[in-house]
């Protein structure tokens, strides 16, 4: 049996201590306890208060800083959002402008192409008409020449066949008469 076992057995053998009230401790215990508590509180207030206050201030400052930072971040985000929205607006305007410009260029190209094709067609039509007219004139001239030649040949044959002796004599007599009457 060791010493602790011996003490426990001795105490159990002596029975539990008794106080004067079952609620209130002894007066000395109250005094010493209150004094000790006050001293502890004073010490806490004196030595722990500034630290706590400082910690609270730092925490408040940190929270304020976080709030300010959040505010700034929000403002930045809002600015960024505005910028993005503006950029989006610019992109839409640029898209509209590019589309309008492309439409205008396409319209101009179409108009120019139509004008050029119309002019070329007019030129071709004019040239074709001139060629047709020239061909018609050429054909007409050739036809007239052919008709004239055939008419000449036919006339010569008809005249030759109609020149009998009496006609020949009449022509000679007519010539002599005309020459004689010339002066």
């Amino acid at each position: 049996m060791n010493i602790f076992t011996s003490i426990f057995i001795a105490s159990e053998a002596a029975g539990p201590p008794e106080t004067h009230s079952w609620i209130w401790p002894e007066r000395a215990e109250i005094v010493y306890g209150c004094t000790a508590s006050i001293l502890i509180f004073v010490a806490l207030i004196k030595f722990g208060g500034p630290v706590i206050k400082k910690g609270l201030s730092a925490r408040t400052e940190k929270i304020q800083k976080d709030l300010d930072s959040g505010k700034n971040d929000k403002a930045s985000a809002q600015a960024e959002a505005t910028s993005i929205r503006a950029a989006l607006g610019d992109i839409a305007a640029e898209r509209t402008r590019i589309l309008a410009e492309a439409d205008a260029q396409a319209t101009a190209l179409l108009t120019e192409g139509r004008a050029r094709i119309t002019a070329e067609m007019a030129g071709l039509e004019q040239k074709a008409e001139a060629d047709i007219a020239a061909a018609a004139a050429r054909s007409g001239d050739e036809l007239r020449a052919e008709i004239a030649q055939l008419a000449g040949v036919a006339t010569e044959r008809v005249v030759s066949s109609s020149l009998d002796a009496s006609t020949q004599q009449a022509l000679i007599e007519n010539f002599i008469s005309n020459v004689g009457a010339a002066r």
């Binding site: 005249v159 020149l163 006609t167 022509l171 007519n174 010539f175 005309n178 020459v179 010339a182």
Partner: peptide, 15 residues
Amino acid sequence: LGGLVATVGDTVIDG
């Protein structure tokens, strides 16, 4: 073919 043509010097009478 028919008729006469007379040339006298430079004068030509053609019928």
